[in-house]
Design a binder for these strands. Structure first.
Length: 280
DNA sequence: GAGACGT
DNA sequence: ACGTCTCAACGCTCA
DNA sequence: TGAGCG
């Protein structure tokens, strides 16, 4: 029993990943992964795992990376097919976190992600209220990008926030992307100072949407679209259209129980990530 | 979830 | 034969 | 310098 509050079992999680594999796999392909594991279910202990222990099967490819403050080389798992995906899901992986670059050119991100992190003050703000601010901020960032002729994709994070994304052509490195992003954020903040901020507030209470350009870095990760999140209801990160977003007032609407049917109906709304080649 | 290690 | 431990890590800000 | 944060 992985999600006791909803009665969702480990078997259902595996069935979900199996069902969603055709749209999920292209987003994982060749991206080093960080795994977020809940081997005893969502109410049990959890841990992040970057390295691949020696006892993992040898058909599971890995990407080796030496971290500055780590003695050893870390062997990030790579997912090529449904077997790889299900092997890892069977270890209790709920959330797959992906690099923003691929193995072929690890220094140059092919994915720009903007994390819309809504206000978090449970005393002052309800989930619908803070999500409304996240939607507003998403529109502000979208409008700013559109001025450069760019139209980002959007998805729910599966928790309270939103993720905007653009495919990149791999010309710029992480530092250069951070610089572009900083400029974009400054413009957004200048236009809407009461809505968005780059300041981390003390006491983890915040009334504005937090924008963090530092998340575009080698080794930093983002929650993959369609990934399961460790919430009581087994919510998932779900791509949506901008029109849908305006009608959406529950960031937790999509779950392992409902996502399959939706994706069968609308396909992968983030498919453009694989074909686009935005030049910033 | 599973191996390493300690008791 | 069990119980316990481990399984990430960057760079900011504030005390 | 170190803990806390995202």
């Amino acid at each position: 029993m992985y999600f006791p509050a909803e009665g969702v079992t480990k078997g259902e999680v595996l069935a979900y990943y199996h069902e969603i594999a055709p749209v999920l796999l292209p987003h994982l392909r060749d991206r080093p992964l960080t795994l977020e594991r809940y081997p005893e279910g969502v109410e049990g202990e959890s841990f992040y795992q970057k390295d691949t222990p020696a006892h993992y099967p040898d058909w599971l490819r890995t990407y080796s990376k030496k971290y500055r403050h780590s003695e050893r080389v870390t062997h990030h798992p790579l997912v090529d097919d449904a077997a790889d995906l299900l092997y890892l899901a069977n270890l209790g992986v709920l959330t797959f976190h992906t690099f923003l670059s691929r193995t072929a050119d690890i220094e140059h991100p092919d994915l720009l992600v903007i994390d819309i992190d809504p206000p978090s003050d449970p005393d002052r703000e309800s989930v619908p209220q803070s999500f409304a601010k996240a939607r507003e901020a998403a529109h502000v960032l979208r409008a700013e990008l559109e001025r450069s002729g760019l139209d980002p994709l959007v998805k729910t994070s599966g928790k309270r926030g939103l993720h905007l994304a653009l495919p990149l052509d791999g010309t710029l490195d992480f530092a250069e992307i951070r610089e572009v992003l900083s400029g974009l954020f400054e413009k957004a903040i200048a236009a809407h100072p009461s809505l968005v901020t780059r300041e981390v507030s003390k006491g983890k209470k915040r009334s504005r949407v937090y924008l963090d350009a530092l998340r575009m870095a080698l080794g930093a990760t983002v929650v993959a679209p369609y990934a399961v999140r460790p919430t009581p209801i087994a919510s998932v990160s779900m791509p949506v259209t901008w029109e849908e977003l305006d009608e959406l007032d529950d960031p937790y609407l999509f779950t392992v129980r409902t996502a399959g049917e939706r994706v069968a109906a609308v396909g992968d709304l983030w498919n453009a990530i694989h074909t686009g080649d935005t030049i910033l």
